[in-house]
Structure formats: C-alpha cells, structure tokens
Amino acid sequence: MPRQIPLKEKLTSENDRLAAQIREQLQQHEIFALNFVSSPGSGKTSLLEKTIAALGNSLEIGLIAGDVQTENDAERLTRAGGRMVRPIVTGGACHLDAKMITRVLSEFNLETLDLLFIENVGNLVCPSSFDLGEDMKVVLISTTEGDDKPLKYPGMFRRSSVMVVNKIDLLGTSDFDLERVKKHARQINADLDILELSCRTGDGLDTWLQWLQRRVRKNRPIVA
C-alpha cells in the first residue's frame, strides 16, 4: 500500500545561497550594488563609462564586466577611468551567476568601495533568474529596439527596480513609442523607476547620477 509522508521542505538553489552570502557581505561593507541587464547594444557599457567619468573622482566604484567571449567592455571601462575593473568571460554561458561573482569579489577591496556595478551578459532572458546578490537590477532598453520588449520579456522587467530608456537622441527616427513602453513596463511592474537618457548627448544623465548618489551608503562628501 502506498503511504504519503508530508515533507514541507523549501528548496533553494546553490545560486540563491551564494547570492545571499554576497548580499550580506556587500551590506556589511555598505556597498550599493547594481546588476545591469539588457539586450546586446542597449548601452550598458556606455552608461557605465559616463557614470565613471562623472562620479569616479568622488566615489570608489567597483566594476565587473561580464561577456560571453571578450574582455572588450572591461577595457572600455578602464579607459573611461575605472580603477577597479574585473572582466568575467563566461565562455559561452548566457548569464552571470553568483559563483562567478563570489570568485572575483575577493579581488576587490570592499573596505573602500562605495558602489559595485555588474554589467551582465547581453540577454533579457536568463540573467533574470540568477540573483547575483545585488541591491537592484537596472534594465536598459534603447529607442532603436522594438518597443514590445517589456511584453516579450516580462520576467526581467518584473525583477528590475529601474528601467533606463537609452538613446533618446534617436527618438522619432523609428516607430519606437516611448509612452507605450512605459505603460507596458508599469503594467508588469508598478514600482519600476523609469529614467530616460542619452549616453550620446548627455541628456537625462543628471537625473540618473542623482538617483545613484542618493543610494550611496558610505558617508562621504560628494565632490562635483
């Protein structure tokens, strides 16, 4: 006779366990961490370059640049003035995972870091399932992409706290409908912060930088 044995066991993955450790470590060191996700080419590296250029003198910014094959983005971030940049070449994997972050985190001096930026692999699907221990995910969408991205990849927009619409300098050159994107993004995630900017012209960057500075935890005077 079959007999049923109740067993209320919550299952967590190794990734979630490691991510929780990373999160605790970052919080102990008062580091605010962001995980940047988007399709390839939306402007993750460009936004990080601009951010380093604007805040790199007053804040200590750690950068992790994930890529399937190359270290190009890490090199761009170093050239932009990034002092602590580590590449992660995934060798084919379409997302970063917490184990990879744990490995490179030991190379940073956490005592001094204010911010940690992680550029994920360009992909709107898989990265949403892998918690890296960040405070928030920032999802980028650019005006040269289809404006149905939120509806096609709801998981990513649901799990992000901020949506950055980049390349607003190109608005009007395609049928990308900004209001439609915002409306759909809010249907999936009512709490999403939405910022519009152009890494090319610098429009809207101030709002982004202010948003970021408000979240720095370590008590430091900000030098303009």
């Binding site: 079959p2 007999r3 049923q4 044995i5 109740p6 067993l7 066991e9 919550k10 967590t12």
Partner: peptide
C-alpha cells in the same frame, strides 16, 4: 518551490 510529500 518545495517538496509537498513523498510516497513510500
């Protein structure tokens, strides 16, 4: 995401 029960 959890185990509900076992059958033996």
């Amino acid at each position: 995401l959890h185990i509900a029960y076992l059958e033996v």
